[in-house]
Design a protein around this nucleic acid. Sequence first.
DNA 1: AAATGCGCCAACCGCGTGCGC
DNA 2: AGCGCACGCGGTTGGCGCATT
Length: 197
Amino acid sequence: MAHKNDTDKANKRSLNKGAWTADEDKKLAAYVEKHGPKRWKSVAMKSGLNRCGKSCRLRWLNYLRPDIKRGSFSDAEDDLILRLHRLLGNRWSLIAKRLPGRTDNEIKNHWNAHLRKKAKSMEKLPANPTAALLNTESRSWADQLTMKETQDEASGDINGDQLLISPDHHDDASFDFSTQGTNGMEWVKTFLELEDP
DNA sequence: AAATGCGCCAACCGCGTGCGC
DNA sequence: AGCGCACGCGGTTGGCGCATT
């Protein structure tokens, strides 16, 4: 009798891999629209797709979701990512939560392709007194941010809108990065204050 | 025109966590 | 308490397209 792992491996081998076809997208979108984006294993089995649940979930989250914003990143988004990355590190899902319509995968790719170099070159700029401050303090700020979010989510009184940066936030006087200096921590404080009711 | 290198993006993989039983 | 399942996350890889030689 074959071990469970062996049969799993055999099943995995027979599953489709690689790029999704338009037909597969259609099937997945139709199924999710009808049953909702959950139970990905059964989505994979019942939708007639020869894919694993994980693959279906990823495809939905990164491509098929109706609120996905495609196209190149604006300067404001770049700036926001740079700042959040300095704060949070490689916590892409947290960063993505602040960029409506952008996925963690997309942000991660964009960072690796474009922003990492930019960030490095910024690091090389002449001594920036608050950069050091950011490096030493950023984790505690990040932890504060994460902790607060966790608490809010746990208590159920989170107001998603307050956590989000509007896609047009450069026009939004309540949180205008363009008017915030790149050096101080003021923007972080403002950012955190936005979460308070 | 062909070969090679490089950048970018979509997708995969492994691991950790949360939850229900 | 322990187990299995489902899901989420971040790192990595594969492949395509464009630029350069």
